[in-house]
Design a protein around this nucleic acid. Structure first.
Lengths: 199, 199, 199, 199
DNA sequence: ACCTAAGCGAGACGGTACGTCTCGTCTTGCG
DNA sequence: CGCAAGACGAGACGTACCGTCTCGCTTAGGT
């Protein structure tokens, strides 16, 4: 991004219009807080402090902690690669390994864990999470759809169920701090799925 | 009397002992609070109020909210059936369906969701959850172990990985409010796993 | 814009200011609690409850129970009359009697007793009380200073010592519940002091 | 012992008797706590801990913190010297100086401050303090009584009032941490009293 | 010499208050 | 008129004592 405020010396308040700078600073601060302190330290107070923003400014634009959280996730998430090697096993394996790595090595893992946590007490987040994960399964399912069209996979296989099994496996590793799972183990898991559906 | 006073500091009094009634009332109250107000309303204060117990009594026996939460779950959970029908598919299917039902129809589902949420901000809970889920996978793995000994399943199959795939599938349904998943879908998921490992 | 940014951290906003209403309500509540339940029932919690104020609001402005106590006393105390009748005996007698009456008939007596009690366990209050009583002796001493200038009193008399003797006499009556002391007795005590210093 | 078993209940055994050792240890511990931490740190818990005694043992014999406090004071107080030099001024001066010194250099000062503090919220202590201070004034008054019989002091002087003035002066110095008062100042104060009553 | 009631140290109990933290809202003055 | 700063009511946090109530033991009369 060009010309970003490196000094930290402070934004100037300019009056009546929504300050894009502020919004940006708030999202940036929220993401930093999540990265550094995780969900436990993620409080509106902490974000406001970090962003040098007033709490009401945050509440004005994000009705809840949850909304801010989701926004941060949207902002952070990079396009995950859905590989297309011609082999469903390789595709799923690469997808899984790269997802594990992304969660492990970028703030996305912490952020997503936070959203999962938040969703357990906030219905709005539950809904957002449902929609999001549904969409993700759709995407992941494309790997299977392509395999179906190649005839690599048994006709009648429901791509969503396979995608569900695969991403569930990833989630549970995220939730129980097992993102550094051995690659052999991941390959075995993927192979079970693939053998279970091969033509 | 034989002189057996081995040390001058010897304690001659043991003090009052833990009141089982209180412990019971606290666990019961904790469960009620969780059921009624969910994880969001689950505070030590609320539990103490409900149990007509003093806060220090709770803190004396449960060092953290987390510990109480885990205890509540242990208490609530009824023995899940690990069926042994002679068919690995049937076994896994029945296990999965009964787990979904238990989570759906008793407070255990909500309690476990709370624990999962808590584990995302409290490292101690993360550890406890890891240990617990590991043990559970071990149990679930028994279904596979039996199938292995029957020769129903390919030699070399790692029971833990299968159990991991199965319980991950259950977890993600719990977390995204999909416990009322269609039984056909569950069966298809199970079948994929089973076909993936059959001899 | 003229460059008057004297420090990089220059504050450009002052934030909300102290609510005079709250301060008033808190002092009022504190006084009520003291009047009704005495020092024993005087807790920050009770004051907050009565004032419908948050505890942090109290702690923000009064660092300790003590500080609040002193403020309540300052607020309550009406100007004590230091009479100037031209007779040192009459002046001291009227002062003493009016002080006894104020302590007896207004909450000030109980409040001051509380401060004396608090000062015995809290060093900060001890210091505040010392400063306060020193100032009071200074005031009371004016009666003697005037008498000195009239030549009514022996040259070289230290006004502070006389004031000390007089107010000590009042304190000890307050502390041992003898504020309804016979006026004749008070007059005799005053007379001893006055005869002891007359020219 | 005469037969006074009036009830049919026929309890014959009187059980174990009060342990003098425990009582002693408790009083000793209480005194130590008061000396070291003052009234602020004087809690039943602290005393029990220090005495290696159970709290109920304390409550069995001393119904309240106050009662224990008074007992400690009774135990500690040494006979104060009421000098008899033939000069009322010298007698009062020596009495005052030795009282200041005792309070300054032994735990009695702290203990008496504690009682004064306690008396401000506990009526029972107020009563005990009143009775005690009355008796003390009686004693101190003996100095005046002797002076009266020597004709050193004006007939009609009320010894109690003089004693009241003197001990009030001492109290207020104790309460405001002025026990290290200059001896000249003390002498001046005493001289005022003595001149005020001389024949 | 046994019995047994009471005293004992230890400590758990239901409570209250402590002083701190964060929540989400409200208020003030700057720009 | 939107912003930062921050005060506010509310209420949970985890701790210290309160005064009461068991526990098992020790102890010392009375029989």
């Amino acid at each position: 991004m060009v010309d970003e405020d490196t000094s930290g010396a402070g934004r100037r308040s300019v009056g009546a219009q929504r300050s894009q700078e502020s919004a940006e600073a708030i999202l940036e601060a929220a993401q930093q807080v999540l990265s550094e302190s995780g969900y436990a330290g993620f409080s509106i107070e902490a974000v406001a402090r970090r962003a040098r923003a007033g709490k009401p400014t945050i509440y004005r634009w994000w009705p809840s902690k949850t909304a801010l959280l989701l926004d941060v996730y949207q902002r952070q998430k990079r396009d995950v690669v859905y590989p297309d090697t011609g082999s469903v096993e390789e595709d799923l394996f690469l997808f899984m390994v790269s997802l594990f790595r992304q969660w492990r090595e970028t703030p996305t893992g912490n952020i997503f864990r936070s959203i999962l946590a938040e969703a357990q007490s906030d219905p709005e987040t539950t809904a957002a999470l449902s929609a999001y994960s549904e969409a993700r399964r759709q995407n992941t399912g494309q790997i299977i759809v392509r395999a179906l069209s190649r005839g690599e996979v048994k006709a009648g296989t429901d791509p969503k169920i396979v995608a569900d099994l695969a991403s569930s496996y990833a989630w549970s590793h995220l939730l129980t701090d097992r993102l550094n799972e051995n690659e052999d183990t991941i390959r075995q898991a993927v192979r079970i799925l693939v053998h279970g559906i091969r033509a």
